[in-house]
Amino acid sequence: MPEQNASQICIVTVTGKDRVGIIARLANAMAKANINIVDVNQKIMEDYFVMTMAADVGQATIDMGQIKKQLDRIGRQMALKISIQDESIFKAMHRV
């Protein structure tokens, strides 16, 4: 488990069809797990609706596996693909 007060930024990525309430559902689930949302962006790319959310899971009350399960459930209910990945993978791949 991460140390107290340590921040661990993860990127939540949502792809699929845009609709009302996506951010609300995600924000609600995250608040319940004590996950702080740091940044939100969205764009239409190659016909995909893409939303990325930077979230700090350092103080989360549930582990990554459980967070993933909750996101998968929301994804199924709203017909979206939702993934969560530690931010360092993007930094490694896209920053020299």
Partner: peptide, 17 residues
């Protein structure tokens, strides 16, 4: 600098598609 939507999407598509 925080990672852009484009960069995130490129990585996510690599695994998804």
């Amino acid at each position: 600098m925080r990672i852009s939507v484009e960069e995130v999407f490129e990585t996510v598509r690599m695994t998804l598609d």
